[in-house]
């Protein structure tokens, strides 16, 4: 039985899927910072165009994107309401029997919304086109300078990758435990407080027990195969930057630098 994969990785073969995960992660980080710089409207058009390109190059369905963005729209509607009632700056746009809506409320909400939307599009393009393990390698790469201050980046990366590898296994086990307990009369859906608590315990306790046993056995296996935390080890996975990766990095970096420059010169 196929299990759905962690996050929202969609196994396809788009342009973005074939980019180096480190380049993608760095680009997303740069762009997310860039999103928060401009105050005026026009730079956002550039960012939106970039977002559109990202979606296209990721092979993502527009419907999928809209579904992902929906929660933001609900949030912004709520935000609009709050701002209409609280922000009373700028010019009056609408007036009804003494109740006034100010332009600032709308502009402010709009700004926040657009920023959230852009952020979400960029990160979605990242997670949809990058396998969880690749993402871990990218994170490890970015955190690697921290090892200079004795931060155990390699060990943290190892922990994350093992955790990722076991998510499907544990979820299958959880399902098995739920079935076994249901067969003993446990009701996971109905019942009053004490019953619900005991139902949860009947799932959580075995799951933890299995997880700990597993951890012990895994540790033995790792030790037997020569793993010593803190000691140097090589990496079999080839991660090589190609020209297209450099182009992506160049584009995101130049956008960020451009925005910073323009901001500093009060052009926004």
């Amino acid at each position: 039985m196929k299990r759905f994969t962690f996050g929202r990785y969609l196994p396809m073969n788009s342009f973005m899927h074939n980019l180096d995960p480190r380049a993608k992660l760095i680009a997303v980080l740069l762009l997310v910072v860039a999103v928060f710089i401009p105050s005026s409207f026009i730079p956002y058009i550039l960012l939106a165009v970039l977002a559109g390109c990202a979606i296209y190059l990721s092979g993502l369905d527009l419907r999928f994107i809209l579904r992902t963005l929906r929660p933001i729209l609900y949030l912004s509607l709520f935000l609009l309401l709050v701002n209409i009632l609280s922000l009373k700056r700028g010019s009056v746009i609408f007036s009804f029997k003494g109740f006034e809506i100010y332009s600032e409320a709308l502009v402010f909400t709009f700004k926040i919304t657009i920023r959230l939307l852009l952020m979400l599009v960029y990160t979605t393009c990242l997670t949809a086109t990058t396998k969880p393990l690749e993402l871990t390698l990218a994170i490890e790469f970015i955190l690697s300078p921290l090892s200079l201050i004795k931060f155990p980046t390699q060990e943290v990366a190892m922990m994350i990758s093992i955790a990722l590898r076991f998510i499907p296994t544990l979820s299958l086990e959880a399902e098995r435990i739920v079935n076994a307990q249901k067969s003993r009369g446990v009701d996971f859906e109905e019942g009053h407080m004490s019953e619900r608590v005991s139902a949860m315990l009947s799932l959580v306790v075995p799951l933890f027990t299995i997880a700990f046993e597993r951890a012990y056995e895994l540790a033995d296996a790792m030790e037997a195969r020569g793993y010593i935390p803190g000691e140097r080890r090589t990496c079999a996975r080839e991660l090589k930057f190609k020209n297209k990766d450099y182009s992506l990095l160049a584009i995101s970096l130049s956008v960020l630098v451009l925005f910073i420059f323009l901001k500093l010169n009060n052009h926004f």
């Binding site: 590898r165 046993e213 000691e231 090589t234 079999a236």
Partner: peptide, 22 residues
């Protein structure tokens, strides 16, 4: 399952070799 460390078959076979700095 409890000795399969890598994310894929390739990664798991490599695990011991990586520890040896191959």
């Amino acid at each position: 399952d409890n000795q399969f460390i890598g994310a894929t078959v390739r990664d798991d076979i490599a695990f011991g070799l990586e520890n040896r700095c191959c």
